[in-house]
Simulated scan of single mutants.
Amino acid sequence: MNYLLAVLLCFCSAAFASADSKTPQRIIALAPHITEMLYAVGAAEQVIAVSDYSDYPQQAQLLPRVANFAGVNIEAVLALKPDLVIAWRSGTPTADVNRLQQLGLAVAYSDPLSLDDISHELQLLGQLSGHPQQGAQQAAAFAKALQQLRENYQHKASVRVFFAMGTAPLSTVANNAWPQQMLQLCKADNPFAAVKGDYPQVGIEQVLSAQPAVIIQAARSDTAADFSFWQRYPSLTAVAQQQFISVNADYLYRTTPRTLLGITELCQALDRYR
């Protein structure tokens, strides 16, 4: 059994058995991806507060904000009297989560680490919120679509790319970073895939030596990607041929059903340069 599945199933049986198995009616989501997945499994009416940047779906923008990357507003959470708080294990400060638990609040964790974990979490959040059928349906649909994408691209010709997380400092993706997992699925050859860390800094000399055929940058849907930094390096194949790809940042960086849109967008854009 998936470790996360075992942990959350244990939470379900332990946390709610003592409450006569009542479904939580007041849920606080402490990360944008948690908010989005709760809406996807049918728990929209139960979500009473969210974290900063929880902007999808649109109705989530109307909810109170009680957390950001810096921490959780403990007082605001307590004032809302939630039945359940769902925290992001990799993002929500541990001290804040511990404090919420010490104050008697029920807390569950979300921590997707791979593309396949999105399916698992949809199912689990459906169970936690009392929507097991819709959660299972969403999970199955995601898993099926992800498998289809893998089958579509497993035999494609690879293309060498550089994924620019930022240019000041110059950084990229590697190992288990979300964009790297998508690059691998799309048969993109990332020369820095095995560099230490998921989001390593690199030197421009290393990029020049790698000679990527395509440079990829993410941008928010309301902002155009800026490739002007690269124009000073015409010896790069990607620059000489003006082969740049801009992808939707929300699709790439949020672990939700919309991740499928990000993979599709990335793979189809790369198809032009194979």
Rank of each mutant, 00 (worst) to 15 (best):
A95R: 12
P57H: 08
A76V: 01
D83I: 01
V50A: 13
A44Y: 00
L270W: 13
G197W: 10
A188S: 10
Q181I: 11
D83G: 02
G203H: 08
T255Y: 11
P200I: 06
N68W: 00
L105P: 13
E121H: 15
F192L: 14
Y233W: 15
L236W: 12
V159H: 09
T35P: 00
A213W: 07
A174M: 13
A213M: 10
L78H: 08
G135L: 05
Y109I: 08
Q147H: 01
Q211Y: 15
P112L: 02
Y199N: 01
N190P: 04
A43G: 02
E151D: 05
Q25K: 14
A139G: 04
Q138A: 14
M165D: 06
P191F: 00
R89K: 14
L5R: 08
V207W: 10
S54T: 10
T256R: 03
W230I: 07
M37H: 03
T259D: 01
A177R: 14
Q137C: 04
V97F: 13
A79T: 09
D52P: 00
P179W: 15
Y253E: 13
T237R: 15
N248F: 03
A108R: 00
Q180T: 07
P169C: 09
D55I: 06
A193R: 15
A70E: 11
A145T: 03
S235T: 15
E265K: 00
R65V: 05
Q206H: 10
A168H: 12
K196G: 12
P212D: 12
I204Q: 09
N73C: 01
D20N: 13
C10T: 07
P64L: 04
D198V: 02
V107T: 12
R99P: 08
S110P: 05
V173R: 14
V50K: 14
Q154N: 11
S90E: 11
A6F: 01
Q180W: 02
Q241M: 10
M165T: 04
L84G: 04
Q241Y: 09
P179Y: 15
F16Y: 06
A79Q: 14
E75T: 12
Q138Y: 03
E36T: 00
T237H: 14
L266D: 04
A164W: 07
I263M: 05
I48R: 09
Q231V: 01
A140H: 05
I28L: 11
S235Y: 07
L78Q: 15
A164T: 02
A219I: 01
Y3A: 11
